[in-house]
Write a protein that binds this DNA or RNA. Structure first.
Lengths: 197, 197
DNA sequence: ATCAAAACGGATGCTGCCTCCGTACTTGGT
DNA sequence: ACCAAGTACGGAGGCAGCATCCGTTTTGAT
């Protein structure tokens, strides 16, 4: 009441119920079948018609972005822990691993992520999250550089790409051992004064 | 004649014509629309029915492998040049670039390539080529290691993965400048006694 | 209880994949 | 030149997924 400016109706109950059901089901399907999973199947299993899914999430990316929202928040939460670390090199390392896990949430995720990172598509719902991640990476890189632990030529964007690549390779089913070797290679690439193995 | 063992008929003329037309058209479509291009469209433009395409090439990978055959030979030819180089480190570098270009022939190519590299699918027509490339890379790596120019911990397979990653990123439309930065990062990762930039 | 706005979902048209099967073509022999 | 046997062809068709339209139902407000 009072001088209330909210002239709008209260949002309908079924909207929220359907949205929640869609998100829940979509997450399960993305986990099981990758980002290319059938949206029709998601709708059916969520107990709604296809049109309802498309009304809530006009594109596959929109649905993906919404499902990813939860995980993004987990990532932000992790940042707090990482920032506690005294060693900026260690912080960067952990941050990269955290990003890589985020990128590996669903098989096939790196592709739409890269498409969004390239930006120039301001309506892509994944673009904003991507740029936030790149900025964050750059922060960690700069801190480590100030401490003399990372080569001066490295930028956050480079390591964003590297983490995305590793996640992509992981998604193709490569063995964990090969991934570790690749991670080591990359780490040798950005670190300063490392032991020439 | 003579003690001829060739009891077989001469292969029909239309078979070869159709095969050639299909390969030619497929290459164009792969170039323009990536490896995911519509096979139906390829068949139609080659002037044959869908069944003919599938009879010649039972799977998309089979067609892809056949189209790639030409380019594979170019790659092998390049090896001769590269082997002429006195410097094994330089040779490795050029070999990696050559592989990367090969992987970037069509957009989307790295995915089926990685799937084949993981092997365990002996009937995948791309598996053999992949393993040949990995072996070749290992040769170059070992030579460079003997010359003390590459870290001892690095293996050919690692750099195969790295080259594949770069090609994948290139395929997503990333700017060439970013790619160069990534290549530099990787090079710093495998080289010994480099100038800590 | 009633109304209008809001949301729903089945039906639909489209594209691409892949296979079956009747037909047409090529080869080798006469 | 012709024929028979075998080979390859290609249109038709079933299936799955995408995305949209529009008549119907649900919902919140009065």
């Amino acid at each position: 009441m009072s001088a209330g400016a909210q002239r709008e109706r209260k949002p309908r109950a079924d909207v929220q119920r359907n949205r929640a059901a869609l998100l829940e089901t979509a997450q399960r399907h993305f986990l099981q079948h990758g980002v290319g999973t059938s949206l029709e199947a998601v709708a059916k299993e969520a107990g709604v018609g296809p049109a309802t899914l498309y009304r809530h999430f006009p594109t596959r990316e929109a649905l993906l972005a919404a499902v990813l929202q939860t995980r993004s928040e987990e990532l932000v939460a992790r940042q707090a822990d990482i920032d506690q670390l005294g060693d900026p090199a260690e912080a960067l390392e952990q941050w990269l691993r955290a990003m890589e896990e985020y990128f590996s949430a669903f098989s096939g995720l790196p592709d739409p992520l890269m498409a969004a990172a390239r930006a120039q598509e301001p309506d892509n719902p994944l673009t904003i999250p991507c740029h936030i991640l790149i900025s964050a990476t750059d922060q960690y890189v700069r801190a480590a550089q100030l401490a003399g632990r990372v080569r001066a030529s490295v930028r956050g964007h480079d390591l964003f790409l590297a983490a995305c690549s590793v996640a992509w390779i992981k998604g193709t089913g490569t063995e964990e051992e090969s991934l570790d070797r690749l991670r080591t290679l990359i780490a040798s690439g950005y670190r300063r004064q490392d032991t020439q193995a």
